[in-house]
């Protein structure tokens, strides 16, 4: 579903963020990406839907090369759901309109169809009553669930998550993770940047560990938690598991 091969990215000639990153996510797979702050996790995941350009290598999603100038990027992105650390709901639009905007403008769905789909997804994430409110009136956990619903409204073939719970108060983390676990169980293909190792243990197929722009470790979940091969991954794991 996602093929990443030999991707290099520089933010400036002297600063390389990604070095020879190669990995893939197959259909129905859940891959968790972790690693220390600044290691390039967000950058890598943003390369997948071309929110960030990269200078070398190739990434393709469902057979479409994202770094091909002939690729219709809006169309490709509409099939790749993305959830951000800071939710990024549109503050000037009501919750339901947050869910309808792209459905109507990108997928050309009628208002009625978009509304029906939107309400169905809000119900699914347990927020049907909030449809007419504005994002600022919702808690962080609620906003993130709306953001997930907004992405799902486009019927994506794959979902990308960039630290979806790290901006949340601790008591709201689980309500968001529950939605993500359900998604994973339904067979959604997911690439998730997160430090929630409980989530990784529960649903991940593979875990990728990044450090200084490199994919240091890319292993099936059990191998990763069992005995990470690299020193750096071991250190990182013991650090985040200790609290």
């Amino acid at each position: 579903m996602i093929e990443i091969s030999h991707v290099d990215k520089w933010y400036s000639p002297s600063f390389q963020v990604l070095t020879d990153c190669t990995t893939s996510v197959t259909k129905g797979e859940v891959v968790v990406v972790c690693g220390p702050s600044g290691s390039g996790k967000s950058t890598l995941i943003k390369c997948v839907n071309a929110l960030e350009p990269f200078q070398k290598g190739d990434i393709s999603v469902d057979g479409t090369k994202v770094n091909d100038p002939r690729t219709n990027l809006p169309k490709l992105r509409s099939r790749v759901g993305m959830v951000f650390q800071h939710f990024e709901l549109f503050p000037h639009l009501k919750i339901i309109d947050n869910l309808c905007l792209a459905q109507q403008k990108v997928l050309d769905r009628s208002r009625d169809k978009a509304m029906a789909k939107g309400m169905q997804l809000l119900e699914r994430v347990g927020l049907k009553e909030q449809a007419q409110k504005f994002p600022a009136n919702l808690s962080g956990g609620q906003q993130q669930r709306v953001a997930i619903a907004r992405a799902l409204a486009m019927d994506p073939i794959v979902m990308l998550f960039d630290e979806p719970t790290s901006a949340l108060d601790p008591e709201m983390v689980s309500e968001v993770l529950d939605v993500m676990v359900d998604l994973a169980h339904e067979g959604m293909t997911m690439m998730v940047v997160t430090h929630e190792m409980g989530f990784a243990r529960k649903v991940a197929n593979r875990v990728i560990f990044m450090d200084r722009g490199e994919i240091v470790e890319d292993a099936p979940k059990d191998d990763f938690f069992g005995k990470p091969r690299s020193d750096r991954a071991q250190k990182f794991l013991s650090k985040i598991l200790s609290h």
Binding site: N49, P74, G81, F84, E88, L89, F90, L101, K105, M154
Partner: peptide
Amino acid sequence: SRGQPAAANALGLTYAQTMRYVVLPQAFR
């Protein structure tokens, strides 16, 4: 914030749509 146009683009909105429906209404307000 840069996250707003990024979120709009990620949903498949074009540059023009992102400006028209997401960025400019907020900037104007």
